Simulated assay, not measured.
Amino acid sequence: MHALRLCKEEAQSKRHLSVERIADRMGVTHDSLYKWLATGRMPGILLPAYELACGCHYASEWLAASSGRLVVPMPTGRKAEGSELLDMNSSCAAALQLLTTFYATPQKADAEATLAALRQHLEQVAFHHHNVAQYATPELEF
C-alpha cells in the first residue's frame, strides 16, 4: 500500500499529475484508483499501467523484494567496448573480495559496500546477458 502511494506522490510532484489524470492514463475510473490506493489492493494486471503513468516502479520493486528477489534493470543493448569488459572483470573481483571478507568476518565487513558492489556487477552482467539474448533473437528493422 505504501509503495502505491509513493508512486502517486512521485507522479504528483514530478509529473504534476492528479489522481484523476493517472486513472485516465490507466483507463480506469478515478473512484477505483482512490479505492485501490486506500486499500492497497490494486489488481496486478493494472500495476504496469499504473507505474507507467506515475513514472516509477516502487510497487513492482517492493513485490520483488518481498519475495526475496533482486531487481536489476534490463539494459537497452548496445555494443560493449573493451574497457567495459575490463570494468566488469574489475567489478567482479572487487565484489568477490568484499564478499569473501563478509563471509570470513561478517561483523567487520561493510555490508552496504558489499551489496553495492554485488549490485553493480549484476547490472553489468545483465547488460551483457541482454545483448547476447538479442543477438540470438534479433529484432526486425523497419
Score class of each variant (00 low, 15 high):
residue 9 E to Y: 15
residue 9 E to G: 10
residue 10 E to H: 15
residue 11 A to N: 06
residue 13 S to D: 11
residue 14 K to H: 14
residue 14 K to W: 09
residue 14 K to M: 12
residue 15 R to G: 06
residue 16 H to W: 12
residue 18 S to E: 03
residue 22 I to D: 05
residue 23 A to K: 03
residue 26 M to S: 05
residue 27 G to K: 06
residue 28 V to Y: 01
residue 28 V to L: 04
residue 32 S to D: 08
residue 32 S to V: 05
residue 33 L to A: 03
residue 33 L to V: 03
residue 34 Y to T: 12
residue 36 W to N: 00
residue 36 W to R: 06
residue 38 A to M: 02
residue 39 T to Y: 02
residue 39 T to A: 00
residue 39 T to K: 07
residue 39 T to M: 08
residue 40 G to T: 03
residue 40 G to F: 05
residue 41 R to A: 04
residue 43 P to N: 04
residue 44 G to C: 09
residue 45 I to N: 11
residue 46 L to W: 02
residue 46 L to V: 00
residue 49 A to Y: 12
residue 50 Y to E: 05
residue 50 Y to M: 04
residue 51 E to R: 00
residue 53 A to G: 05
residue 54 C to G: 00
residue 55 G to Y: 08
residue 56 C to E: 00
residue 56 C to D: 03
residue 57 H to P: 02
residue 58 Y to R: 10
residue 58 Y to D: 08
residue 59 A to V: 11
residue 59 A to T: 14
residue 60 S to A: 10
residue 60 S to L: 02
residue 61 E to A: 12
residue 62 W to P: 02
residue 62 W to C: 08
residue 63 L to P: 00
residue 63 L to E: 07
residue 63 L to N: 00
residue 66 S to L: 00
residue 66 S to I: 02
residue 66 S to Y: 04
residue 67 S to A: 10
residue 68 G to P: 03
residue 68 G to T: 00
residue 69 R to I: 01
residue 70 L to G: 01
residue 71 V to C: 07
residue 71 V to T: 13
residue 71 V to Y: 11
residue 72 V to N: 06
residue 72 V to Y: 00
residue 73 P to Y: 04
residue 73 P to K: 07
residue 74 M to P: 01
residue 75 P to N: 11
residue 75 P to D: 15
residue 76 T to W: 12
residue 76 T to D: 15
residue 77 G to R: 05
residue 78 R to S: 13
residue 78 R to V: 10
residue 79 K to H: 11
residue 80 A to S: 09
residue 80 A to W: 05
residue 81 E to C: 10
residue 81 E to G: 01
residue 83 S to C: 07
residue 84 E to F: 02
residue 86 L to I: 09
residue 88 M to G: 07
residue 89 N to P: 03
residue 91 S to R: 09
residue 91 S to Q: 13
residue 92 C to E: 02
residue 92 C to I: 07
residue 93 A to K: 02
residue 94 A to I: 07
residue 96 L to S: 10
residue 96 L to Q: 12
residue 97 Q to V: 05
residue 98 L to R: 00
residue 99 L to Y: 08
residue 100 T to H: 10
residue 100 T to S: 10
residue 100 T to D: 15
residue 101 T to I: 07
residue 101 T to F: 06
residue 102 F to H: 08
residue 104 A to F: 09
residue 105 T to P: 03
residue 106 P to N: 04
residue 106 P to L: 03
residue 108 K to P: 03
residue 109 A to E: 07
residue 109 A to C: 05
residue 109 A to R: 01
residue 111 A to L: 15
residue 112 E to H: 12
residue 113 A to C: 07
residue 113 A to K: 08
residue 114 T to Q: 01
residue 114 T to L: 09
residue 115 L to F: 13
residue 115 L to P: 06
residue 115 L to D: 10
residue 116 A to D: 14
residue 117 A to L: 09
residue 117 A to N: 04
residue 119 R to D: 13
residue 120 Q to M: 12
residue 121 H to I: 01
residue 121 H to K: 08
residue 123 E to L: 06
residue 123 E to H: 00
residue 123 E to R: 01
residue 124 Q to C: 00
residue 124 Q to E: 12
residue 124 Q to L: 09
residue 125 V to L: 13
residue 126 A to M: 15
residue 126 A to K: 01
residue 127 F to S: 04
residue 127 F to T: 00
residue 127 F to N: 01
residue 128 H to I: 11
residue 129 H to Q: 14
residue 131 N to C: 15
residue 131 N to E: 14
residue 131 N to M: 12
residue 131 N to L: 13
residue 133 A to P: 05
residue 133 A to T: 06
